[in-house]
Write a protein that binds this DNA or RNA. Structure first.
Length: 214
DNA sequence: ACATTAAGTGATT
DNA sequence: AATCACTTAATGT
């Protein structure tokens, strides 16, 4: 494995220097690999072997579950995130239970599995980072379950749109009804009708391929 | 101008 | 809320 470019190391420091101690940053620079994945490509699919843990430097990755042809979006990974779920996964089963699709061109560092366990005892900051990450993902998962169990599709849709607008820091979302329906595991027709209602009620403003959250 | 893709609609379950 | 079957509108070549 070749050493990563110093400029990538700088990016890592920009994002993590207040989180990780110097020695850990150095180790990460020494042993990890740099990867870029463009929009539309898979970072990981269900059943894939997990050989690394991604540390996201840039971009967005949609994490979802899949059963047969059906799918359900769970949450998004962004700058500063890692998939801590993949962490425990790595140590034991090593097969991913999630699908990770790159939604916005992403840059990341791939941390080799065999190192991360040692860091857990060696670095307090790493320990905290992993535990926090776990906690955060769990909360997001609970949120998804709640929405699924207690909300009507219209409420789920609005929540979904607001969530995207919030995390992308842009009230203008570029997406088709078809894509939304896939994320929420429903049909396009249903989304089209609900989008109309939300539009009429003034929650959103929608045009072809675009939705503005108000 | 034509083909493709996205979105809208009525009727039915 | 899902599905079918069809229409209309927007967009790319």
């Amino acid at each position: 494995m070749q050493k990563i470019d110093p400029s990538v190391c700088d990016k890592l420091r920009d994002e993590y220097s207040n989180l990780f101690e110097e020695a850990l940053l150095n180790e990460i620079c020494d042993v990890s690999e740099y990867a870029t994945i463009t929009k539309g490509n898979l970072l990981i699919d269900i059943g894939d072997e997990l050989k690394f843990i991604p540390l996201i430097l840039k971009g967005t990755i949609k994490i979802s579950r899949k059963e047969n042809d059906k799918e359900l979006a769970l949450y998004y990974l962004e700058q500063g995130d890692t998939c801590a779920i993949s962490f425990a996964n790595c140590l034991h089963t090593s097969k991913s239970v999630f699908k990770g699709l790159v939604e916005k061109d992403a840059e990341m560092l791939l941390l080799p599995v065999d190192r991360i366990e040692g860091w857990l005892v060696k670095y307090e900051s790493w320990r905290h980072y992993i535990i926090d990450s776990y906690h955060f993902r769990l909360l997001e998962m609970v949120d998804s379950i709640d929405a699924l169990a207690f909300l009507k599709m219209k409420e789920r849709l609005l929540k979904y749109l607001r969530n995207i607008a919030k995390s992308s820091k842009d009230s203008m979302i570029e997406i088709t009804h078809q894509e939304i329906s896939e994320d929420l595991n429903t049909s396009r027709v249903v989304i089209t009708r609900l989008i109309q209602e939300l539009h009429d009620e003034g929650d959103i403003f929608s045009t072809r391929n675009k939705i503005r959250v108000l």
